[in-house]
Write a protein that binds this DNA or RNA. Structure first.
Length: 459
RNA sequence: GUCUCCAUCGUCUAGCGGUUAGGACACAACCCUUUCACGGUUGAAACACGGGUUCGAUUCCCGUUGGAGAUGCCA
């Protein structure tokens, strides 16, 4: 059985890079009818925070990436230490007594010489236990070519002298990520490790641990990183790229996932890919090797496509939820029953649920729109007189339109003469949903009071 | 610095030795229309550079350049 895992460190909100890694892991597991595990890597006591664990979980739930199993890495610490001691006993690891100051000196030395930093391995062959604090280091092979067979990156090799004898147990006795992740993966029988390309170098090290443990190697797939618009690695410091931030902005989760999926993975020319299709089509082979830049514009565009595919009821529910979260005064059921039918028309003009909701509230909320127009179309007396006495009939949008057109014709006016004025009066904007949509929803009082206010304004 | 990886329109990408180099976003024009948007039509826009291999390279190989990642007793 295929088992994948997503293993975020709860040191910040889930950002789009992590979200995509999670999505790929989930999709791959689903595609193969396997399991997707979530492992919270909370071993960095200083930086790990429960609030981040919660926000990561909230993000994944929002994206509807459910897991078969969840674990918290700090619960397995004893197991990791046990393995470290085993490696120590079997001679694959050793106690290193080098002080931090010493290490720092050596690091500077390497820098001067223009080499990778490899500490002096002074204690590598000392078996006797010494006085003083020590860290446990893993013995990397010497003078070998190390190779990873990566599904995405292909065959990647490195000379073992480029890699340090890395710490698996800190001076304080706690295991490091390099060890913990491997042990947990091994015990969870993870078959495919799909993670960011920034872990590639770690893989050479982790592979050696696995070999020392006589364990099977998982299949590795290192996916290219997503870069920000400047082309650099995404950092948790960029709050705007947090998943929850997009949720807040009114991005639909499936649109979000669709966008993320297409960032680095493709299926011919397909752009809009449903969850179902994604599960059916997803594979590791079609993941590109080059890193991609995050393009917010395209995310919004994808979102607007998803929004337009929603039904009236679904749109209403989205707006309702948004308004509730934003603590807007809720619109009454009677008005809603009218708004619903024109929701798709408003949705077609907006990119996010947030924009949609705000439009709905601007147009149909209890307050009059603010007249922030840039252009005041000059109004002539004839038009003004018409608007002063005209009141839309009660009826369907079509009936309202027909009626208005007829009345205009009687006065030798055209729709063009009055359209912009009505629009500005009703919405306070040059851009708005269809006139008759607006007239259909607004009550006679709302209509006339807005018209009156407008006419006062332009007179 | 050293190591590793990457390189097709501005962006995301298709392409897997022979194509008028395709699609999407964004952009421009036109059509539709009560405006905008949607939709439709069209347009502008790319194989980083230099060597090979080959009858033929965007595609394979090697350099150069550019970019990214790693280089933690973080994960």
């Amino acid at each position: 059985m295929i088992i994948t895992r997503f293993s975020p460190a709860p040191t910040g909100d889930l950002h789009i890079g992590g979200a995509r890694t999670a999505l790929f892991n989930w999709l791959f597991a689903r595609h193969h009818n396997g399991e997707f595990h979530l492992r919270i890597e909370n071993t960095d006591l200083q930086r790990s925070k429960d609030e981040f664990t919660n926000s990561i979980i909230e993000s994944l739930k929002w994206m509807e990436l459910n897991w078969n199993h969840i674990s918290y890495q700090n619960e397995n610490l004893n197991e990791h230490v046990k393995i470290a001691n085993m490696l120590l006993a079997s001679g694959y690891a050793y106690r290193c007594y080098t002080s931090e100051e010493d290490l720092e000196k050596q690091r500077e030395q390497s820098k001067k010489l223009g080499k990778v930093f490899i500490h002096d391995r002074k204690w590598r062959n000392v078996k006797e236990v010494q006085e003083g604090p020590y860290a446990v280091r893993f013995k990397m092979p010497l003078n070998q070519t190390l190779t990873i067979n990566d599904v995405v990156q292909g065959k990647v090799s490195i000379q073992s002298d480029q890699l340090d004898d890395f710490v698996i147990l800190r001076r304080n006795g706690s295991p490091t990520y390099l060890l913990s992740a491997v042990v947990d993966d091994m015990n969870a029988k993870v078959t495919h490790v799909i993670r960011g390309n920034d872990h590639l170098t770690n893989t050479f090290k982790q592979q050696e641990i696995l070999k020392a443990l006589n364990s099977n190697l998982p299949i590795y797939a290192h996916i290219p990183l997503i870069h920000n618009c400047e082309g650099a690695k995404l950092s948790k410091r960029h709050g705007a790229l947090s998943v929850l931030e997009y949720k807040k902005q009114g991005i639909l989760p499936m649109a979000f996932c669709n966008y993320l999926l297409r960032l680095g993975w493709s299926h011919g020319n397909d752009e809009i890919i449903s969850r179902e299709q994604a599960i059916k089509w997803f594979n590791l082979e079609n993941i590109g090797k080059a890193s991609a830049r995050f393009d917010e514009e395209k995310l919004y565009s994808t979102n607007s496509i998803y929004m337009r595919s929603l039904t009236e009821t679904e749109l209403r529910d989205e707006v309702f939820t948004f308004a509730k979260n934003m603590k807007y005064n809720l619109i009454n059921d009677e008005t809603w029953s009218k708004i619903s039918s024109i929701l798709p028309s408003i949705a077609a003009r907006t990119k996010t649920i947030k924009e949609l909701s705000n439009d709905v509230y601007d147009f149909f909320g209890s307050e009059l729109p603010k007249y922030n127009y840039d252009v005041v179309k000059p109004i002539n007396t004839k038009v003004k007189n018409f608007l002063m006495k005209y009141v839309p009939i009660k009826g369907s949008k079509e009936e309202i339109e027909l009626n208005l057109r007829n009345k205009l014709m009687n006065e030798s006016l055209s729709l063009k003469d009055v359209a912009l004025h009505i629009r500005l009066a009703l919405t306070g904007r040059k851009v708005s949903p269809g006139l008759f949509d607006m007239m259909f929803v607004l009550s006679e009082y709302e209509y006339t009071s807005r018209i009156k206010a407008w006419l006062k304004k332009v007179s």
